[in-house]
């Protein structure tokens, strides 16, 4: 059975680059345009995953495990982030009956 890195290497690196760029851009646009906090949140995750994918691809192309280790860290942090983030969203929903980020502009000046 082929090693996973070898499987990854069957696809040219450029494709990964284009794909993650696309994913990242979708994430960015999502964050910028959507109002629903949960969707914004998912878009952030999308950006994180785009980076994860790229890290994995580079790691296997360069035969360097560090990249993959990084991915694990990012996933762990992202999970923690989701916990906190979702909790915040739930709390704000309880308070203002909405998850619209545009309404959350009290933190200024």
């Amino acid at each position: 059975m082929n090693q996973i890195p070898e499987v990854i290497r069957t696809i040219p690196l450029n494709y990964y680059l284009f794909f993650s760029t696309a994913l990242f851009a979708i994430g960015v646009i999502g964050v910028l345009t959507r109002r629903n906090a949960i969707v914004v949140f998912m878009c952030v995750e999308l950006m994180l995953n785009a980076v994860n994918l790229l890290l994995t691809a580079f790691a296997s192309y360069r035969a360097d495990a560090n990249g993959q280790v990084f991915v694990f860290f990012i996933m762990a942090v992202a999970a923690a982030e989701v916990c906190v983030g979702l909790a915040i969203i739930v709390m704000t929903y309880r308070n203002i009956r909405s998850t619209d980020v545009q309404l959350l502009n009290y933190l200024k000046w």
Partner: peptide
């Protein structure tokens, strides 16, 4: 300068991008 601190997350993110 504080007027730049509008509190709207979308604005911050946009500036960041």
């Amino acid at each position: 300068m504080r007027y730049a601190q509008s509190g709207a997350i979308g604005f911050y993110v946009m500036m960041m991008v």
